[in-house]
Nucleic acid binder design. Structure first.
Lengths: 231, 231
DNA sequence: CGCCTTTTTGACATGGATCAATTGTTGTGG
DNA sequence: CCACAACAATTGATCCATGTCAAAAAGGCG
């Protein structure tokens, strides 16, 4: 499984140093965490809740580039200024690391820099996988793919296996999903209804989704792999 | 301007070491450089020509994830196995570095690793920018955006300024562009014709394109920035 | 209960895909 | 040098998945 914190593979001294500079902050639903075009003052991790990293066109069309789920990393080392906006989807708690202090640590610690390279490469893989979805998948396949991602993340967070009975909470609104999948909210809604009617998912009471047959959902997602590595 | 080789910011000793292990190879048009699902045996750079890094769905739908133009880097450090296919678009010469030797060098050289982190972050920015295009731009905007990219790359390679009269060769077929923009080749062709008719571009003899007014092209591309950094 | 937001569903419009025919280009061998 | 084959590009006609507009239904909350 993917290592999901900066600290993995770093010695105890790095961990202590990180502990010394971190602070927590909770954002309310809809609150802007990082504004586009403004200076990034911190890096951090999502502790709980969901946030969205998005980019807009001048006329307001919006594309969510990345969903930030618990344990996900926020911020880049390179940009002085954020080309993206990060907004809280529901209440989110962020573990913040002041950028300047953190950068100094990275420069002086090759182990930490190595870990950052791994994170960047993971992000790159994820972005490229999503490009295939955005470019070539149908609306139904997009929605199924998103459900696969959410199911896997839920399983990872709560220690379930995606193979057996899957039952999880979808915290995102139809509109948020639409902006992530490059669809309209109406189309997302219709695909949920269709997948429900076809028995691929079972829509439960508010926001809960049950997946009776994970293989079937994977098939609907049209992925060539089950999201993992070819062996 | 972006630094475009691994060697930038590395001391002369790293450069010498890289020189010692590099070899060149030329691929013919259509030839597969890296096969999907197979082991990556090298990393490298495009010296001249164009290659495409792409990913497919089971039923053959294809999405080009990244165009590899002269000076672009090939390969990741992380993956043992390539989830992508790399194919030559026209004749391409690659500067190859054997993966094992190269990895050993990176591990022993923090400067080289730092340079790699920068490359990965550049790739991540590019991927995310393309996600906005794939998800939210119209066919006309997509084609205009691609022309902006090609114009900039040409200017960078040949020392022109994109501001004054732009005149460059489009080496890609309509089909390749279609796979990169997530369109069909017919739609790409129609958009070229339309941009030509509207005076945004002037189609010249085979493959040459002239851009009389770069600002107009940028406007058609619907970008919120001119592809650079907000200041 | 009534207000507000989100979701669902329906009717219709449209951008881009698909299918198909024509023209233009490059390369090859007689 | 020309004729022919193979491929690339253009253009037209039609179709369809998804977008758009609109209204109703379902929750959520003071």
């Amino acid at each position: 499984m993917r290592q999901r914190t900066v600290c993995a593979n770093c010695g105890p001294s790095e961990l202590e140093k990180l502990d010394a500079i971190k602070t927590y902050k909770t954002y309310q639903s809809g609150e802007t965490i990082v504004r586009a075009g403004y200076k990034m003052e911190f890096l951090g991790f999502v502790m709980c809740g969901v946030a969205a990293l998005s980019r807009d066109l001048i006329d307001g069309r919006r594309q969510i580039i990345r969903l930030l789920l618990p344990s996900d990393f926020i911020g880049g080392l390179k940009q002085e200024v954020s080309p993206f906006e990060i907004v809280a989807i529901g209440e989110v708690t962020i573990c913040k690391l002041p950028k300047l202090k953190f950068e100094a640590m990275v420069l002086s610690s090759p182990a930490l820099e190595h870990r950052f390279l791994e994170i960047a490469l993971d992000e790159l893989d994820a972005a490229r996988e999503w490009m295939l979805l955005l470019g070539r998948k149908s609306a139904r396949e997009k929605v199924a793919s998103l459900l696969v991602v959410l199911a896997n993340h839920d399983a990872e967070q709560n220690g379930h296996s995606p193979a057996d009975g899957l039952f999880f909470l979808v915290l995102l609104t139809r509109e948020t999903m639409a902006n992530y999948l490059a669809l309209t909210l109406e189309t997302v809604s219709r695909q949920f209804s269709a997948l429900n009617k076809d028995g691929v998912i079972v829509l439960g009471d508010l926001g809960y989704v049950r997946v009776p047959d994970y293989a079937k959902l994977l098939y609907e997602a049209a992925d060539d792999t089950d999201g993992g590595i070819i062996t």
